[in-house]
Amino acid sequence: MRLSSIPISAWVGIAGITLALFCALFAPWIAPYGERDVVGDIWLPMGGDFPLGTDNLGRDLLSRLIFGARTTIFVALAATVISFSLGMLLSFTAAVTGGFVDQLFSRFNDLMMAIPTLIFALVVLAVLPQQLWILILVMAVLDSTRVFRIGRAVALDVAVMEFVEAARLRGEGTSWIIFREILPNTLSPLLAEFGLRFAFSILFLSTLSFLGLGIQPPAADWGGMVKDNKDGIIFGISAALVPGGAIAGLAICVNLVVDWLMKRTSSLKGGRGDA
């Protein structure tokens, strides 16, 4: 694959993700003010000392945005990694083992998916203590049901291929079949799926925070910042739209990259089919 083969839209996506990651990694060094420092009047307009203005308590919006990138990306990424590992492990086991194990996992997964994710999260978070690791775990478990479904479908697609049967006939063990025969053939769709899940996690986390059930103040996170500043909207103060735009921007960037990955996968597959 050559770099020039990447379309512009994907470059935009990659650039956006890189910028967000840079902010997240080096927040304390690049943010002009502290995360929780009250530095001025409330809801100051953009410009001057505060490029993006100040928030409802007089904190620098840009600094909070940069620190917020850290929280938002870290939590979303952690939830995605956990949900992906969990979903993939269970789905590949189900697909390769088949029979009772497959039935059990799949039916339970159907049950979990019968409740809308947000509603499920609301019910569970109503009961559980508000802690960061619980939040990540709830997001991960709920999202892993979607990963399970995809993982199982993709693995089954490959598992019925004759080269897998050939490996079975040779006497290969389950782990060889999963890691050497099936996994290499599912990497591209799964990579795209990982991107999708990450974008979804960012939006989901932001929504929960916006509803007051995600990251708790005073820690900065983008969804929470929208909640903090939403009362300004009615006075024409756009402070809430800044973190909202950041969420949308990052999600768009991730989706642009995913879109490209998917097109690449499908055209690869098409190429093989035509032969």
């Binding site: 994710t117 947000l118 979607r146 995809i150 479908a153 697609d157 799964l190 795209a192 979804f200 097109k263």
Partner: peptide, 29 residues
């Protein structure tokens, strides 16, 4: 998008993974 539905992400019906997801809604049945 408030992460309510199972409908996730873009391009639901292009690419193999998307195909799976596209189907996933009705798959339990």
């Amino acid at each position: 998008m408030a992460g309510g539905g199972p409908i996730t992400g873009p391009a639901l019906s292009t690419g193999p993974a998307a195909g799976g997801e596209g189907l996933s809604q009705s798959a339990p049945v």
